[in-house]
Amino acid sequence: MDTLNMRTGGEGEPAVLLLHGLGATGAVWNHFAPPLGRRVLVPDLPGHGPSSPLPHYSFETLTAAVARALPDRRPLVVAGHSLGGVLALELASGKYDVEVLGVLALGVKVEWTQDDLGRVATLAARPARLFETRVDAEQAYLKVSGLLGIAPADPAGLRETEGGWRLAMDPAAFGVGAPDMPALLAAARCPVVLAAGENDPMSRPGRLRALDPDAVTLAGLGHNAHVEDPAAVRALLERFGV
């Protein structure tokens, strides 16, 4: 049976669902979640950490897996980073029997070239790379998740195997493709805040503002703004009463 690892904690409603980006795990929210002072739900997405892989990865299958793993159907505020931001928007469409009160989509990659799509398709087709040492695997994990130099590697993101170490991430997850952001924004049944770090190469402020004139630029921050400055990102959730 497929399982999705869900980290939970805190009290107070509405709960906040925190969705990590591709290659990371829910551990990226470790310093972000406690000061929220409310119930938090932090999954490891399918094919990441100890969560089971999926037979096919798409924004819809990933979102459906998260929705199935929720402990109840009480209303939620959802904050998602990068891939997690796309899933937050998908969840807000109303297709998954989940009431979403607000979405913060942080650092979503909104510009995709054919080269980008070809590169991730190639990565998705490759077997997991084997590393001789845990240190090498940790460095690879941090590079894939964009956390090099700003956070330690999550042990749950690594797996020891015969002959060495590999990332716990299922490489096939790279194959989700490019999101249709205009359609996702139009379908969301709740308020949405788009945001990105000023120095985020994957989610440039000008491109975000083309999608939403009110998109927020977080001064001085990069792609993992929620790790670099948790307080600055938490402040955006105040718009949803969090």
Rank of each mutant, 00 (worst) to 15 (best):
D214Q: 14
L130I: 06
W165F: 05
A196H: 10
P201E: 08
N199R: 15
L221V: 02
R189F: 11
A186R: 09
L218W: 15
A196N: 11
R209Q: 10
G175L: 00
E160S: 10
R159S: 10
D116H: 13
A156R: 10
D200I: 01
V103H: 05
V216L: 14
A183M: 08
E162L: 09
V193N: 12
L147T: 01
D212N: 06
A156S: 10
A168Q: 00
A140E: 13
P179Q: 01
L117Y: 04
A128E: 09
R204A: 02
A183P: 04
A125R: 08
Q139L: 13
A183W: 14
F174S: 05
V120Y: 10
A186P: 13
P171D: 12
L101S: 07
V110A: 11
A137M: 14
P179W: 00
S203M: 06
M202Q: 08
W165E: 06
M202S: 14
D170C: 01
L194K: 05
A210K: 08
G146K: 00
G175V: 01
T133Q: 14
E138W: 13
A210F: 07
A178Y: 06
A156M: 06
W165A: 07
D154Q: 04
E138S: 15
L117M: 09
G149P: 00
V120T: 09
A125N: 14
A153L: 04
L147D: 15
R159K: 05
K109T: 03
A172I: 00
T122K: 08
L218R: 09
L101D: 11
A140Y: 12
L147Q: 02
L208Q: 03
R189I: 10
P171V: 00
L185D: 14
K143H: 15
V192F: 11
T133I: 02
L147A: 04
E160I: 00
A172K: 01
W165K: 02
A156L: 05
A140F: 09
